[in-house]
Amino acid sequence: MTIIIPFDPSSSSTLPYLQPAVIDPLVCVLPLLLHRVPAGFPSPADEYVEKGLDLNTYLVRNKTATFFFRVIGDSMTGANIHDGDMLVVDRSIEPKHRHIVLAVINNEYTVKRLYHQDGVIELHAENAAYPPIRFGEHDELQVWGVVVGAVSRFAV
């Protein structure tokens, strides 16, 4: 039931006392929807909004122990590592047989596949043009880190 009171500008006494609307001093913070609502239904996906994909989370497992290197040469093309690629190297991983590793040979960094079986240690290229490097009983193989990924960028 709505009571309509006729408006008489000459008299103020005709107006009943009205309770003023409460202005809530507390700011109510609601999560902002990430898209505009076109005066219809809110998107059913709003509850499921997640951050975009970050390549770092895909390529880097342990940020503290991860370093990047740039590749020169084609000895690892069989493992999809090409000249100019960026290698993601994780030092915290224990090198094992069949891992692609970054080794130190003659004061230079080299990328090769580690062969370590039955007491034989070798570094294999993934390109028939390059012979494997063999390690004798008294030689020391210095593995700097394990390669966990490679990134290419193409000219456009």
């Binding site: 290197f69 590749v71 040469g73 000895s75 000249d83 290698l87």
Partner: peptide, 16 residues
């Protein structure tokens, strides 16, 4: 600046 600049990352050889 090996760890902070893409132009400076160290080189790894796949050429021998």
């Amino acid at each position: 600046c090996y760890t902070t600049s893409w132009n400076d990352v160290p080189i790894v050889h796949a050429d021998h």
